[in-house]
Every structure is written in C-alpha cells, then in structure tokens.
Nucleic acid binder design. Structure first.
Lengths: 207, 207
DNA sequence: CAAATTTAATTAAACGTTTGTTTAATTCGC
DNA sequence: GCGAATTAAACAAACGTTTAATTAAATTTG
C-alpha cells in the first residue's frame, strides 16, 4: 500500500499474464514472455509474486465472484423463475466481462495438474451450483416448476453460458460474424439471455 | 503394415499419450513421461511419430468422428425431432466413450496455440454443426418446431453434452457419487439422453 | 532544508534443470 | 548377414529461479 503506481504495475502484470494464460495455457507461457509483454525485467515476477505458479494463483483468486451480491439480488424477485433468470443474466454478464478468466478457470478444472487449485475451484463452483439448485428445488416444491432433473438443469445453464463465453472463434464462424468481438457485444449478450429465458421457461413451467 | 504387434505398440503409445495429454495438457506432458508410462525408449517416439507434436496430431486425427454413419442413421427417422434425438444420443454415446479425447479437443479449440490444428478442429466442428442446424431449420420450415434461435439451440445441445463429458469430477461432487466412473456408466448416459429429450422437446415443439 | 543513511525497486548475468530431438552403437528377427 | 527395432548417451535450447550489483525512493539525521 505504498506508491499506487506500483500496484498499478502489479495489476498490469496480472492483466497481461491473464491474457497470455487464457490464450496459451499455463505451461505454454514462459515468464520471459510475460516480462517481455509487460515490459519489465524477468526477475520482477519472482520479486512481485514469488513464482510463476503463485502469479497464476493470484490471477485466479482475484476474480472469483463473490456470490454475496447475487444472493442478495435474488431477494428482489418473487417467483423462482424470475430469480433464476436474474441469476442467468448476472452470470452471463460476469462471464462476458471476464472471458479470459473464464477460459482459465474451466481449463484448469478439466486438468489433473495443480490438483489443489482444481479442488479449490470445484469447491467454489459447487457452492454456486448449490445456490442455484436450491432455487430450482424450491420452484418444484412450490409447484411453480415441473419435477425436472435439477442437477442436469442447473448444469445445462452453466454449460451454455460457458460454451458461448469460451468458444468465441467457433461461434464467430457459425454465426458468420466478421470479428470475435462481435460475438460478445451488448446485443449478443441480450440475445443469449433471451434465449436462456425461452429455453428454461419452456423446460420448467408446466404445459 | 508389418508385424501386427508393432502397430499394437503404436496404438498403445497413442492411447497412453492421449490419457496423459487429456489429464495434463500438451505442454505439461514430457516425452520422457510418455516413454516411461508406455515402457519404451524415449527415442522411439521420434522414431514412430517424428515428433511430440506429430504424435499429438495423430492422436487427434485418428478419432475425429466420421459423420457419415450419423448422416445415414438419421434417414431411418421420419420427424425432425426424432432425427435430432438420434443425433443427441449418438453424440452422447461417442462423447462418453472418448472422454479423454473430447477433453483434448475442446481444450485445443479454446487455445491460440497450434492455430492450424485449432482451425482444423473448428472447421470439423463447423460441419457437424451445420448438419444439425439443417435438421432444426427443416423442422421449423415444416412447422414441426417453433421458430427458435437455431444456432444457439444447436450450440446448447453440444454445450450440455460437452460439459457433462469433460467435467467428471465436478459432476461427481454435485451428484454425490463416490467415483468419477459412476458418472459415466450406462444408467447415467441414458439419464442424460432422456434429459436432453425432455429439454429440447419442450423447447422445440409448439405448446 | 539538505545531506546522510536506509530501504525498496530494478537490472544483467548466471544458476542448475528439464525440455524435445538426434546420434551412433547395439540387439533383434528373419 | 542384412534391415529394422531398440538402446544409452549426448545435444543445444529453453525453462523458472536466484544472485549480486546498481539505481531509485523514502526516511532519518544534523
């Protein structure tokens, strides 16, 4: 908490390294490449973060969503469907905003490397899951929802948002967009949210 | 095509390397680890495959589904919904059977490494996408389906199967299974297929 | 306030490992 | 005894990290 510019520089390194890790994966990115891109001496990475792996862990932990606001946010809604749709919109927004980060997270969770990190992420994800699962279960109990497969339903919600978020080049090709950026503009975000609303409304509501 | 045992040994190496690449990612696996696990001399990898990267490419290309059978298979069905469900079941089966392979594929597609390989995979995936997209479009034209967002619908189908296939430890935890293997037994496969049927039936059919 | 001193930030160079690949010698099957 | 399969050893290059020296900034002192 000294010179604020020092923390700025630290944040710069974190941002640049995050991008590189998202593009290439942890092992494929060398500390030399990070230092080159961030225009710092290679020794500064050990100096700031201790090691390449600790830098990686800091990148991950700094952005893990605190679902506190989300949990408070849902209270504003009456029906479980509206709560669920609020969650879908919030998660979509967060994923759109931090696409590089999400790439790292989901790649890390699919690896058997750095198992303590994977365990940590799975535990975090599990809690979010549980929170949304409870909404759906409550909806079923109140007969607002059909008696669907709860776990698969919630998993599907994440799966769709995740795939859209992390498969930019693929979706770019499918939807005949010129640039990957076009896949993630405001219009497309709202389009995805509307789609999720339609899909899960048909799936959950009776008739 | 000489001594069949030689090809067996080659296949062994491909299988073992596939597992390692799926677990750890391309860069994290060393040729020494592959040779140790396969109980061969390290030089044999260059001897058989030329290089680590060519070994990797061979692992990928040998299992890319030929969608010929799939395209012929759908002809046995009358309605577009039944065709789509046949595709869903077939893809699920294939993904369940080759989980390690699918992990590699989707990780590779999310990386900006080995861009020619990623481009190749995206092109392949695009064709499969197109095939399924056509089914949905035909269903809409015939008024068998509601006028849904076609691309997002097809993407969702893949997204769900993919997430289920590649997030074993996660799903294991959510569903309170003891072992990851339990997530991928016959019963669970049928459960997932039934879920997909319910979800997309509600999404696609009028009312 | 300026000089002296301490602390922090930054650097170039070197460290010991590990990497993928190659070489040259040897073993094997026919 | 000849060609293919297999081996141990060596290769240069790249890796993450550390060192020791230097510059910059902050603090203390007279």
């Amino acid at each position: 908490m000294q010179d604020p510019r020092i923390n700025d520089k630290r944040e710069d390194i974190l941002d640049i390294a995050e991008r590189l890790f998202a593009e290439q994966g942890f092992e494929a990115v060398s500390v030399r490449e990070i230092s080159r891109e961030a225009e710092i001496n290679i020794a500064m990475i050990s100096y700031y973060f201790g090691s390449k792996e600790k830098l990686y862990e800091e990148i991950i932990k700094r952005k893990l969503i605190s679902y506190k606001e989300l949990k408070q946010g849902v209270n504003a809604f009456d029906t479980e469907l509206e709560k669920l749709m609020f969650v879908a919109a919030t998660v979509t927004q967060a994923f759109f905003k931090n696409r590089n980060f999400q790439k790292i997270i989901f790649r890390e969770m699919s690896l058997n490397q750095r198992t303590h990190m994977a365990d940590y992420l799975i535990e975090h994800m599990h809690q979010n899951f549980q929170f949304i699962t409870d909404i759906v279960k409550r909806g079923i109990r109140k007969k607002e929802f059909k008696p669907v497969e709860v776990e698969l339903t919630v998993m599907s919600l994440f799966a769709i948002i995740r795939m859209y978020t992390t498969s930019g080049t693929m979706i770019c090709k499918i939807t005949n967009k010129n640039s990957v950026e076009d896949v993630y503009d405001e219009k497309q975000r709202l389009r995805l949210i509307k789609f999720l609303r339609d899909l899960f409304t048909a799936h959950l509501l009776p008739q």
